[in-house]
């Protein structure tokens, strides 16, 4: 099998070809924080957080310039009510079946099979592709974490597009 696509190198190559200064990708060499599971997954409420520009019809869509906002998507939202708008990936399949970047139905199916207790009442979506890592760390990340704590979820699944 061929190696995984090195998106960092390809972004650097592309920026160079366009005459931009190299993008400074975040590199974290420290040991990440680690919280053991407090209870079995079969008894856990599972939150879904996805970048990828997903919104529900009736909501304000994301914009393409460092959008730090996010949307709450109720767990009972039907896939046909979801929309996808993003600049950085091919959305053809995501618009056909949002579960490829926002696996809410998949998660609810697994709740039905008792693999988890339930999907959290709210999933959260944002845009991603935010140039400033500092603003993600200082503004978006704490705001999302606040919501998950308030929602009393047990674990979270993060899905970049």
């Amino acid at each position: 099998m061929a190696d995984p696509v090195d998106y960092i190198q390809r972004t650097l190559d592309q920026y160079a070809a366009l005459g931009y200064p190299p993008y400074r990708w975040v590199t974290n060499e420290d040991t990440p924080p680690f919280t053991p599971l407090a209870k079995p997954l079969a008894k856990s409420t599972v939150a879904l957080i996805a970048s990828g520009g997903i919104y529900r019809r009736g909501q304000i869509a994301f914009h393409f310039k460092d959008d730090l906002s996010f949307r709450a998507i109720a767990a009972n939202t039907h896939a046909s009510e979801l929309r996808v708008s993003h600049f950085a990936y091919d959305m053809t399949d995501a618009r056909k079946d949002p579960n490829v970047v926002f696996p809410l139905e998949t998660l609810k199916d697994l709740a039905g099979l008792s693999r988890i207790a339930k999907a959290a009442d709210n999933a959260y979506t944002f845009m991603g592709g935010i140039y400033s890592a500092r603003r993600v760390r200082d503004i978006l990340a704490p705001a999302l974490a606040d919501r998950l704590v308030k929602d009393e979820v047990d674990v979270a699944i993060m899905v970049p597009a």
Binding site: V26, P32, V136, R137, A141, L144, A145, V155, M158
Partner: peptide, 13 residues
């Protein structure tokens, strides 16, 4: 980065 923040707040990711 967001996962690290959530994990640091006590929610496994």
């Amino acid at each position: 980065m967001i996962a690290r923040e959530i994990e640091a707040r006590g929610i496994p990711t």
